[in-house]
């Protein structure tokens, strides 16, 4: 899949601004970005729902709008919400999608893998959010696609089922399916994705494997938890000692966090401060840079809250 110089504008707002990216076959590729970054618009252009205003989009070498007939059987799409008749039963809905394909997966197997077999006869409107979510994923997979777009596949799922879905996505990759996913959960991208594209304001701000993106950071995080509440004035003294390049956040009476240059002097300053103020650390953790830190650095924003 290849996007070249895609531009999408609505009335007064540029949703996607000269975006180019490539998705390699047989990989899991995560598209991350804050709310309104242009992820959904980009994905929907690849799925043929929108026509590129400028630039071009090729999916499996095809134009999603012009070559719709040829492309649609080859891709699977999981929408963020909805996509089923409210009165249709889980199994009935999945079977219907299966019948539209030449050589669909066994619906029973798919339902079992996604823990949907208990609600096979439940109408869609009475399914829980998590069940609707999993049916959405099942509907995307049932036609044995070469490429699947999954939008927030694990939003609102409990941890156990989230792990099941992760394993399923990894199995898809192993079986030769290309997966393009958007997610709120950075740990999800970190664990699953071969490649991560971070989008902000409709532009690509970073691309790489999770390792490439998290390596070589310039910011270190130290989290300190103490046994007794900080003496009055002590946190202020630490802030002064650390200097302006370092950010100090008092989390509560017993803990604080320091973000500063990733060198030994920050840690030494904190240790000396403990000695001077007779503060006894209960724990001192050195934060490793994760995808969340990268995301924050690049976009200056928290990732979206799930379920938004």
């Amino acid at each position: 899949m290849r996007i070249d110089g895609l531009v999408m504008r609505y009335a007064d707002k540029t949703a996607v601004d000269d975006l180019s990216l490539v998705v390699e076959p047989h990989t899991i590729t995560a598209v991350l970005g804050p709310n309104g970054a242009g992820k959904t618009t980009t994905l929907e252009t690849c799925e043929g729902y929108r026509r590129p205003q400028r630039g071009s989009v090729r999916v499996l070498g095809l134009d999603p709008v012009k070559d719709r007939r040829a492309l649609m059987p080859r891709i699977g799409v999981m929408l963020q919400a909805g996509g089923a008749w409210s009165g249709a039963r889980t199994e009935e809905m999945l079977r219907h999608l299966a019948r539209l394909h030449a050589d669909p997966l066994d619906t029973g197997l798919l339902m079992e893998r996604l823990a949907l077999h208990e609600c096979g006869r439940t109408p869609y409107r009475r399914l829980s959010g998590g069940q609707q979510q999993r049916l959405g994923l099942a509907m995307a997979l049932v036609g044995r696609p070469e490429l699947v777009f999954v939008d927030e596949p694990t939003a609102g799922l409990d941890p156990q089922i989230r792990r099941t879905v992760w394993e399923l996505l990894e199995e898809l990759r192993a079986d030769g399916v290309t997966v393009v996913l958007t997610t709120h959960y950075l740990e999800e991208a970190e664990r699953l994705a071969d490649r991560v594209h971070i989008i902000d304001h409709g532009r690509l701000v970073a691309s790489g494997s999770p390792l490439e993106l998290t390596r070589g950071g310039t910011v270190a995080t130290i989290r300190l938890v103490v046994t007794q509440p900080f003496p009055p004035g002590a946190p202020e003294a630490l802030a002064t000692a650390l200097g302006a390049t370092t950010e100090l956040t008092v989390l509560d009476d017993l803990s604080l966090q320091v973000s500063g240059p990733a060198d030994g002097s920050t840690l030494a300053t904190v240790a000396r401060w403990c000695e001077v103020h007779e503060v006894l650390p209960e724990s001192l953790t050195l934060g490793q840079r994760n995808l969340e830190d990268v995301f924050l650095e690049l976009t200056g924003r928290e990732p979206e809250v799930s379920g938004s």
């Binding site: 249709a88 219907h96 019948r99 539209l100 394909h101 030449a102 192993a174 079986d175």
Partner: peptide, 27 residues
Amino acid sequence: AGTFAPAPGAAPLARQVLAQAGMETRL
């Protein structure tokens, strides 16, 4: 291995139309 190995393809048109008609009738 290979449960999800891609094998895409559209069902014959008549089967699609019948499936859709059947589904909508039932609903």
